[in-house]
Design a protein around this nucleic acid. Structure first.
Lengths: 234, 234
DNA sequence: ATTACTAATATACGAGTAC
DNA sequence: TGTACTCGTATATTAGTAA
């Protein structure tokens, strides 16, 4: 049987263990000063192996390094952090199921742009087939501001549903990913709903667009300024 | 340089990945039906490798297996679950720091047994050296009832401080582990405090014993029946 | 279809060494 | 002290095969 070749920028579990150790040693926010022999003890492998693993992690863009006299300063890249975070969410699903991650934000007046796009037939057909409903023609725009870091981790928090790009005679319409959420507002809540993240984001990254089979503003009696919580489904 | 030999019952990261996949496939509570080729696809290795890893996991007592015609039913053992849970808590420290695990319970009248033991000099010396305080001569007994599963995971939730066994002319006194906690009661809270878990547990497993440098009942104005929360330190 | 064995090979590891 | 080579060896992996 043919096994898919390892991608050149992927990570194996021993490298992941090394990356996790760097994170545990404080490497997530800032660079961390380490030496191979120090990590060697913590990981239970030789210093040579640690040296090689760190070089591999650098090669695959999971860390960046700066060699100094008494060791090296290692920074975990965004890609490295994303890998660790994905791992975290897998374990989270195992042991903290039910206590789902959330995004808190404020409803804002939309720009009317999303409305036009999601009404297009090329998108509607996919929504219906892959989300199981035909979205109300309009998006609920939620300013997630401080929760932006969470927004960036949506892809590791839930299984996104892909919407493919398509074209008509005139132009091409871009692909997007939909993340399943429950929308909470005051006492009420509604699902199914999805956060719609276009591959090429059109506007402010601190705002997410939510689609649902109903008009959420009416359904939940909310309007610009209302506080809502988007609970990410598992 | 000498590297410590791998212990015969330890787990390497590739086996851990396999174990995690079994858990994600629903193997935590109950046995899960899998086949090597099915796991092969999910793990990106050959079916032969999966077969070997499953046998290794069985060998090291992380799973138990039952071969059937169309695959095998795999159960993750307590040991296997503990390994996964430990991994979960490491990632949790990375991404959910601050939001610490807790044990909720009710203060119960102690049996006066703990009091006698912790006052003994052989223990006191260790407490002072390793916990940084001399415990008040008496334990706060907390019935954790429903949180018993959490109790069993104390060792993966925090770094326990070991208290060694010792003996005098007459007998040997057993070893124990202390887990750092903050005790919350009503508006007040106190730390440092530790949950004391004897290696050979003397009494009801649904009760944990808490020690602190002060008399917690007086300090927090609590008594039998009071609700307390033990917040496990990271 | 399975699982598991054997044997060939690919990969990872650590000792020794250089800088 | 560091890191990072080379290189012989140990380990892990897969192909092929058997049951």
């Amino acid at each position: 049987m043919m096994i898919a070749p390892r991608e050149h920028d992927s990570i194996d579990y021993n490298e992941l263990a090394t990356l996790k150790q760097l994170a545990l040693d404080g490497g997530l926010g800032r660079p961390v000063h380490v030496s191979c022999s120090e990590l060697s003890g913590k990981l239970g492998v030789s210093a040579q192996t640690v040296s090689r693993r760190l070089r591999e992690l650098e090669e695959t863009d999971h860390v960046s390094r700066q060699l100094v006299d008494d060791g090296q300063n290692v920074s975990i890249t965004e890609k490295g952090e994303s890998v660790l975070h994905g791992e975290y969410y897998e374990y989270r699903r195992l042991f903290a199921a039910g206590d789902e991650p959330t995004l808190a934000g404020t409803v804002t007046d939309g720009m009317g742009e999303g409305k036009h796009y999601i009404s297009l037939d090329g998108y509607q057909r996919q929504f219906e087939a892959r989300l199981g409903y035909e979205p109300f023609p309009g998006t609920l725009n939620v300013a997630v501001g401080d929760d932006t870091p969470h927004r960036d981790r949506l892809q590791t928090m839930a299984d996104g549903v892909r919407i493919d790009e398509w074209s008509d005679e005139e132009r091409t319409y871009g692909a997007a990913t939909c993340y399943p959420v429950t929308v909470e507002a005051g006492e009420g809540e509604f699902s199914p709903a999805h956060i719609l993240v276009p591959d090429r984001t059109h506007h402010d990254e601190r705002i997410v667009e939510v689609i649902a089979p109903v008009e959420l503003r009416a359904e939940l009696a909310i309007d610009a300024g209302s506080e809502v919580i988007l609970r990410v489904a598992e």
